[in-house]
Write a protein that binds this DNA or RNA. Sequence first.
DNA 1: CCCCGTCAATAACTTATAGTTATCATACCA
DNA 2: TGGTATGATAACTATAAGTTATTGACGGGG
Lengths: 292, 292
Amino acid sequence: MDIRELEYFVTVSELKNFTAAAHKLHISQPAISKAIHKLEEELGFQLLDRTQKKVLLTEEGVVFLSLAEDILARMAAAQNTMIEYKNLTRGTFRIAVPPLLGAYVFPQLFADFKKSYPSLEMSVIEDGSSTAVDLVQQEDVHVGLVILPPTLTDLHSHLITSQEIVVCLPTDHPLSSQPFLTFEQLKDEPIILYNEGFVLRRIILDEYAKYGLVPRVALSTNQFQTIKALVAKGVGISFLPKNSIKVVNHVTKIPLHPHLFLEMGLIWKPNKILPLACKAFIDFVNEFEYVK
Amino acid sequence: MDIRELEYFVTVSELKNFTAAAHKLHISQPAISKAIHKLEEELGFQLLDRTQKKVLLTEEGVVFLSLAEDILARMAAAQNTMIEYKNLTRGTFRIAVPPLLGAYVFPQLFADFKKSYPSLEMSVIEDGSSTAVDLVQQEDVHVGLVILPPTLTDLHSHLITSQEIVVCLPTDHPLSSQPFLTFEQLKDEPIILYNEGFVLRRIILDEYAKYGLVPRVALSTNQFQTIKALVAKGVGISFLPKNSIKVVNHVTKIPLHPHLFLEMGLIWKPNKILPLACKAFIDFVNEFEYVK
DNA sequence: CCCCGTCAATAACTTATAGTTATCATACCA
DNA sequence: TGGTATGATAACTATAAGTTATTGACGGGG
């Protein structure tokens, strides 16, 4: 019992004529005869009554017709669904995004991607930057949007944007007119950082450590807005990606010397077959010119 | 996209192993490889990830698997349904039964048939004996259980039983001790008959007419029991199939001279493909020894 | 009433494709 | 690092789906 045979049977049942069905299906009439006979042979009884001029369904044929039509409809529906996946008008994938990137890189990326692929669904796992790489490794997510570690053992990656980290000072701070600043100059300033577990905090503290310095952390938070407001009020200085702060009253941005950069990108597991939707996202990000 | 291909895909998905699937399906492993490749080629993307040791479903593969399983399940269900029809554990047919036969021939036949084929459904159209033949001709019913007309133009028929029509008299009637009776002897007796439209009434009146007689109809009814009770009470005489009356107090049955018979049988349209259930019924009736 | 046109069945043959065997490439395990 | 298990590939075979040509049967129109 074959899909083709069901198709032939349904067409003959509709047209009540073997020859007409053969034409419609672009095959010869004996092919239809043969297929119907094979079907009847398999089932053990006749489906079509060919004794009269018109082809008529037997009672069993009527029952079989409705079953066959149902199967063909589901077959067609299944094909359409898969075509949607192929056309990227349907699909899902999972992406890990740590809070920092989720805050100001991802929204833009996501919005632009959605414009190109409005039907694709993205499942965002916001599970901290440190675990994002692990999630990709364990295949719990298909891609991760992360701050790229210096060495990536066995993951593919694609750089999206390299953001400079700048010092944020109150406008009336004595150092606010310098063209650039060194960690040595900032060693005694109280600093405001992200909470423990955030990548940016780790990076800043590691930089201080490079010069043998241990800064005095005045306060830590996980709120972006809070950091900016506290800097404006003169509570302390901070370090933020240049683009994340546009124009804020009473806050001056000064580059570090030497420059400090934050590389952000996509990572995914090679040799792993990704959902088409995820491939589309990776390709999209590849061609996406992120405004620096 | 073929049913066989879906089967192969589902089996591989279950076992997560091409070779094992090939064994289970009693074919060679390359046949599986080929079929899966063909499927993937058609769909335009991979369904199975074969890069690792174990075969894994891709995200699209998971979706397709559930669709494929649904289609296969429906295919199997359709086959089972048709097997039931073949095995006569499912099926329906329509039969026309006029009231007279419906009253005392059909119940026995129906009960015995049901014993042999408990799952078959019979749709009884009780539409008067005269129209039963027409219903068969017009294919509104598959068979008719009728009083066989002397000539059947283009219908097949099978005699079930030939019942003698006997005169029913009150036991104390002056003619009740005769060995047989002629219509001449009965010409002045008030008679009790079935209502207009019943075949038996027509037959009795036609017999009277044969001898140039017009009987006096005392009363007509469509109730069997009423006729018997009225005869017992001495209201009049009647004519009934011999077997339809067993032992009734105060009623004597006397054969007619010449004997009058009622032939009952099945009729159906030749060259017309009947439901298997109906064929089973005709065959059953053919072999059924109806107690005379 | 018979002939002609229509339509399905059949036969003989061809083509397509599903399946086979043999072999290779690769990933995992010890 | 070599051995085993497993899927891919190639070349071939067998099956069955499809083709053309033809026959046979039914039904409507002259």
